[in-house]
Each structure stands twice: as C-alpha cells, then as structure tokens.
C-alpha cells in the first residue's frame, strides 16, 4: 500500500508516493535523487545516513519517510551556498578530514548538530559526541581537528 509523503527538503517542498516501509534515506536517495546521503550499515550504527529533521540530527536509515511527513529536512546537499561551503564543510576540507568521502556527509551533518548543541567543545567531548559516526579512513584525528576548528567559526567567535 502506498500513500503520498510530503516534506520540505533543503528548502524545497517535495512529495512522493511511499510504502509504509520506505525509509527516509530511501525517500531522499531514490525518490528525490539526493544521493549524497549514504547507507553504510543496517544496524543504525555507522552514521553515513545522518540528516537533520526539524533541526536535529537523525539516522535517516532508522526513520520511516512517513515519520518525516511535514518536517523540514536538511541533507548534505543543502549546506553550501553555491560554491561557498558551509563552515563545517570548509573545515573538513582545510583539515583533510575526509579521504574516501563515504562517511563524510553523515559526519558533517552530525558535526554541525554537535556544534549547534554545544557552546564550548573540547577534544574529549567531540570524540564522545562522534559515537554515532564511523570512519575507516582518517583515524578520526583530522575530523576532530576540523570540528574544533569549525566551532568558533559557526559560533561567530573566531
């Protein structure tokens, strides 16, 4: 049985026919062709699929498209302003916080949410807050550096 699911994605009103079981990540990738959000596991752990729903980070592989009905969704494709990267994207580039790029969209979305939730950040907090995102390439070293670098830029205290 299918029915229509509508939401706002990266500022645009969208609708698509979905089954009950259609996951938010499938909605984004298959219905909207927004393939920047990735699927890296099937046990809700790797975090490659993280997007923002109504301003908070969620794993879009563990949320039904129907549950996002009427919500405001932001994906990795919705961050940059043309050629101008979001400060977190820029910090990832500047600090070589990505290698193969597969975990990167989820990493960036989690990192932005982390900065939004923390007035201050230190290395230990960043590492703990990255619990839900796995990376196999970087050893996390430069990801942690990038988030610490982006924090003051996003907070306007740089």
């Amino acid at each position: 049985m299918t029915s229509t699911v509508s939401m706002t994605v990266n500022g645009k009103q969208v609708s698509a026919e979905c089954e009950g079981r259609t996951l938010l990540v499938q909605y984004l990738r298959e219905k909207l062709a927004l393939t920047g959000t990735h699927v890296g596991c099937d046990t809700s752990q790797c975090g490659a699929c993280v997007v923002h729903v109504d301003g908070i980070s969620v794993k879009s592989c563990t949320m039904l498209a129907h549950q996002a009905e009427g919500c405001d969704v932001v994906t990795i494709e919705g961050l940059a302003d043309g050629d101008t990267l979001h400060p977190m994207q820029e910090a990832f580039r500047e600090n070589h916080a990505l290698q193969c790029g597969f975990c990167t969209p989820g990493m960036v979305m989690s990192a932005i949410d982390m900065v939004n939730r923390h007035d201050t950040l230190d290395e230990k907090t960043v590492r703990h807050q990255l619990e839900g995102n796995l990376c196999r390439c970087t050893g996390y070293h430069n990801i942690v550096k990038a988030i610490l670098a982006a924090h003051p830029v996003m907070k306007g205290t740089a």
Binding site: I56, S57, G132
Partner: peptide, 9 residues
C-alpha cells in the same frame, strides 16, 4: 544511551 542520533529519536 546509544549515540546522539539514537538519543534524538
């Protein structure tokens, strides 16, 4: 519990 995204849902 879980991780930040699990805690959010």
């Amino acid at each position: 519990i879980g991780d930040p995204q699990v805690r959010n849902r």
